[in-house]
Design a protein around this nucleic acid. Structure first.
Length: 394
DNA sequence: GAATCGTGGCG
DNA sequence: TCGCCAAGATT
């Protein structure tokens, strides 16, 4: 592969300089310098030395866990789009429930989702569960050591596969997560948002990867992004690559990596029913397998239509989705919650069951439960606030 | 290729 | 309060 960065996804190795070529001639010349082994070796050594003294102490790096691919795998999946601080308690708790890949493979999905509850992006848990079954059944319980086989597992893309293979087996496979994107974008002074130059960034990540110590190098790269090359206020004076960094040299660290601003998030107003029967039980439903919050439990409800009152909305939704007749009572709580692509306000009403057999029309399953047993079901965050309000009331 | 998919923390 | 986004993958 030519030592040249093409911002476009086009793999064609044109040697003609053009505005679409990353950083133009100067940047390509800068990259060319890494084709000299001595230059590259010194560059890598700077980061590896920094890692020895300033790297983070994280559970998935400690012996003897280091050689347990299942634990490495778990960390990589939990860390997708999720910060280390958030992951730590989940990570430590996980192995009390699922100590081995075999135990995960034979587990019930509801148990898996319960252990994942609150961590978000629940397709990660469902895919992890599926992948564990595949590893046990088709790979004799051993995590595959090839990039292709690893990426064939559900929930494992190129970055996660590289993270597992390099960290668990010390294989020279590049990574490109959020930290590395930011570090490399600044290193080469990427003139476009990272999403527009993924091929170029992968090329750099592979180019600079240490062949001798790929595990430490990749881990160091992520640590650098997480502790020094911060999104805001990076501490460049502490950076082992300060003299190599094109963004620092050209005073562009505040605008690189570049971002494309988006408009305001849409806001949905939802009517939600807490339906209580004569036994004091409450009706919950399990969401469809695919899509938002798939497989988790919730209190039923739906969007308010134009010109509709909240009471009318709740009554209609319960009729449509559960075939139940209810009497809509007082408002229990309003829960505001922001997802990645929209915001919601859940207007929760206490409701009285009047009649009908609940049917899972828009869900996988419905169930009458008591407040004493409701904690064993996995709920999304917005719904746990409702449960808290219910417990406080009783 | 663009949308979708959670939650928490930050300025 | 609000926008941004963090160890991305999937469709």
């Amino acid at each position: 592969m030519p030592a040249q960065l093409n911002v476009n996804a086009s793999p064609s190795p044109s040697s003609v300089a053009s505005p679409r070529k990353l950083g133009r001639a100067s940047a390509n010349q800068w990259l060319q310098s890494f084709s000299h082994p001595s230059v590259l070796n010194q560059f890598q050594g700077k980061l590896l030395d920094w890692y020895e003294t300033s790297g983070r102490d994280l559970p998935w790096r400690r012996l003897p866990d280091l050689n347990d691919p299942y634990r490495i795998w778990t960390s990589e999946v939990m860390l997708q789009q999720t910060q280390v601080k958030t992951v730590l308690p989940y990570y430590n708790r996980w192995f009390e429930v699922f100590p081995t890949v075999e135990s995960l493979a034979i587990a019930d999905q509801q148990q898996v989702l319960k252990a994942w509850e609150g961590l978000g992006y629940y397709s990660r848990a469902r895919n992890f569960h599926r992948a564990a079954k595949i590893v046990v059944e088709k790979h004799s319980g051993q995590f595959p050591k090839s990039l292709e086989a690893a990426q064939d597992l559900p929930g494992i893309g190129r970055t996660t596969a590289g993270g597992i293979l390099s960290n668990a087996f010390d294989l020279p496979v590049p990574i490109l997560d959020g930290n590395v994107k930011r570090v490399l974008s600044r290193l080469v002074a990427l003139p476009v948002p990272p999403a527009k130059a993924m091929d170029a960034l992968w090329f750099v990540s592979e180019l600079i990867l240490s062949g001798d110590r790929p595990r430490d190098f990749n881990q160091a790269l992520m640590d650098l992004g997480a502790t020094v090359c911060l999104r805001k206020n990076p501490t460049c004076l502490l950076c082992p690559w300060m003299s190599y960094c094109q963004a620092y040299r050209t005073n562009q660290t505040t605008i690189i990596p570049m971002t494309e601003s988006k408009g305001p998030l849409p806001h949905k107003v939802i009517g939600v029913a807490v339906i209580e029967n004569e036994q004091g039980e409450i009706l919950i439903d399990r969401r469809l397998e695919e899509g938002l919050l798939g497989g988790l439990w919730e209190f039923p409800g739906g969007k308010v239509e134009p010109g509709e009152s909240m009471e009318e909305c709740v009554k209609r939704e319960i009729k449509e989705e559960l075939a139940l007749d209810i009497e809509v009572g007082e408002e229990l709580i309003v829960v505001n919650h922001a997802y990645t692509h929209f915001k919601v306000s859940l207007h929760v009403h206490l409701c009285r069951y009047l009649g009908g057999e609940p049917k899972a029309i828009a869900s996988q399953e419905v169930r009458w439960v008591t407040l004493d047993t409701i904690d064993q079901y996995p709920f999304p965050k917005a719904n746990t606030k409702i449960i808290e309000a219910l417990k406080k009331r009783s």
